[in-house]
Design a protein around this nucleic acid. Structure first.
Lengths: 344, 344
DNA sequence: CTATCCTTTTGCAGCGCTGCAAACAGGATG
DNA sequence: CATCCTGTTTGCAGCGCTGCAAAAGGATAG
């Protein structure tokens, strides 16, 4: 243990000739300190190179100054892009971010929304669940401030931040229909228990058909347990092996879209000429892939900022505020996978 | 502040009829506790639902139980994939991971390897620097355990974990030469001050030519400040605008390769027929792109495990161990971007 | 039956900070 | 000149845990 007798508040106080409490006040920027005292203390701080011991501070304050962000998979681009924004937003507020990945494990998810195995490691959680079931949410520690992203609409005890999945999916599907495609598939549907968001997207998919007065091809709605490349590639292969393959696909994530495109290309089909593909999330990969991927782009910066803001509000208040349903904006970004190559 | 009078060690002690110190011993699994006592205490723990307060524990122990992992950009797939493995490895050892991104900012990097602005937030740092200069490393806090990944070979005061960049790059280049390519470009060279790893890769590039008795085309070595898609795309465009473009490209990262491929395809060229492309890092994107990307695959799991292991060793020892240079294995993975499509 | 040794348990101090409330100015007011 | 007030500074207790060293048992030996 490298404990070289670090500089403490008391040391500074002694040098500056004031009480340690006053030094604390200066360091924390509290009001009601005369300019004269402040300067004296500041000099002593600089001279000794004092740096507060966060552990002690947090213990005394009764909070850890950290929030946990829980995602299923860290290497999923959507999550890492979002994470980046969350870390920035938290840092501005003086909060550190602890990252946890659940690998989609239900039990792990459940443990984390109950403060993990120890107290005070983090003051609140931003949770992007994969298979978070209703029951897990039900018996969670109600005192742990929680903000949920993406899946699972709020039950009133926590905030939920996301885009309007139904509307976004309707836009995506309408885009395909408006290109003249009539056999549009959907890849990514899930049962309610694990995928509320997926269900909302399927609903948007249906609404688009309704609005255009066109029939939904029920057999082209493909369920998928995860939203990754492998799932997209497999589902696409499954669709192509049918008698009557689709001429367009609405994928519930960009990764699924990239996987689907991979299958299409390797089977010698052209995207978008033979099959148009649209994704969801607007991850960077889709901007450089061949072809580039048309997608629904959620405002990630807004989602991150809103999530952090709401979480800190919860952490700071005695009586928990009501659970809100918060919507970030989204845009449809048209790229080659539906519009074709613009120039040679 | 939601301080609902949490269960403490003392509460458990009272219920179990022992001293709080004994409860602590049981909770921490120390030896020398009779089975009888252990059971009694455990029952009390379960009954009250006691969970240790990590903050208090860490303060008393004088360490935070957290390590910081510092990367330039979190949304770079290579880093997020590596991070995933680091988090797993750390968790096994009871350590939490605090993540920080520097956005490549030198000042930020310097601050972090000096413990940030406060003490005891983390016990050690795993650092994947981008532009970490020699001087920043020189005046760092020598008491903060440090393990560096990728860039910048150890100066003896910290450990460095990585693959053998020279050898790996030689393999990559030899692969291209052995395919019969004779105008091989390299994208990603950097000056020493910011890119020691880049220089090693360039050296490997040269060595490959030497070994095959072929001349290096110096004008085909393209410097790039970063290793992302945009840089790869631009550099490729620059190369194609030349009178005598290359017939193969060794890219210093998979992202660069994906960017380069993007430019090639959008200009109507065929990969690998017209230009073969090889990357570096083996990120997931390259396994599903069109074409899939031949690459150097570093053993990320091994790198992560080694880094965590060495760091914890440093944290745990009074006298800092000597700074080691540690090598993880790597493999050449041949895919479509050099070998062409295998089947229709 | 006492001395010795080892194992198990205990008590206390203290990690370094902040919350709280009291103490202490130094004016303004009557 | 006493009283009240506002703004500033201080002292103390304590956050919940662990390190340390001493105390208490229990077993074994003399």
């Amino acid at each position: 243990m490298r404990r070289g007798r670090e500089v403490t508040l008391r040391d500074v106080a002694e040098l500056a000739g004031v009480s340690s409490r006053t030094v604390s006040n200066v360091v924390n920027g509290y009001a009601n300190v005369t300019e004269h005292t402040r300067r004296r203390v500041q000099e002593a701080v600089d001279q000794l190179g004092y740096r507060p011991n966060v552990l002690a501070r947090n213990l005394a304050r009764g909070r850890s100054g950290q929030i946990a962000v829980v995602v299923p998979y860290l290497d999923t681009p959507y999550f890492s892009e979002l994470l980046q924004d969350i870390i920035r937003a938290a840092r501005v507020q003086g909060y550190n971010v602890l990252i946890d990945q659940t690998d989609g494990d239900r039990e792990h998810e459940r443990m984390l929304i109950n403060h993990g195995s120890s107290r005070l490691l983090f003051d609140g959680v931003i949770f992007s669940p994969l298979g978070l079931s209703q029951s897990a949410l039900a018996d969670r520690d109600p005192n742990l401030p929680l903000v949920v992203l993406g899946e699972r609409v709020s039950d009133g005890t926590f905030d939920h931040v996301g885009i309007d999945d139904v509307e976004a999916s309707r836009h995506a599907t309408e885009h395909l229909l408006d290109l003249g495609r009539r056999r549009v598939a959907a890849i990514g549907d899930q049962p309610y228990e694990t995928g509320e968001a997926a269900q909302l997207r399927t609903r948007g998919f249906r609404e688009a058909h309704e609005r255009r007065g066109l029939p939904v091809h029920e057999d082209l709605i493909i369920g998928r347990p995860r939203f990754n490349r492998a799932d997209g590639a497999e589902a696409m292969a499954f669709l192509l092996d049918r008698d009557d393959p689709p001429d367009a696909v609405f994928c519930y994530s960009d990764l699924v879209a990239l996987g689907a495109i991979h299958t299409l290309i390797s089977r010698g089909m052209r995207v978008p000429e033979d099959v148009a593909v649209i994704g969801y999330d607007d991850i960077e990969d889709g901007r450089y892939s061949n072809p580039t991927v048309t997608t629904i782009s959620p405002d990630k910066g807004m989602i991150a900022a809103t999530a952090v803001e709401r979480l800190l509000l919860r952490i700071g208040s005695t009586a928990p505020p009501p659970g809100l349903e918060l919507r970030a904006p989204h845009r449809l970004i048209v790229r080659e996978s539906t519009a074709g190559r613009v120039s040679g």
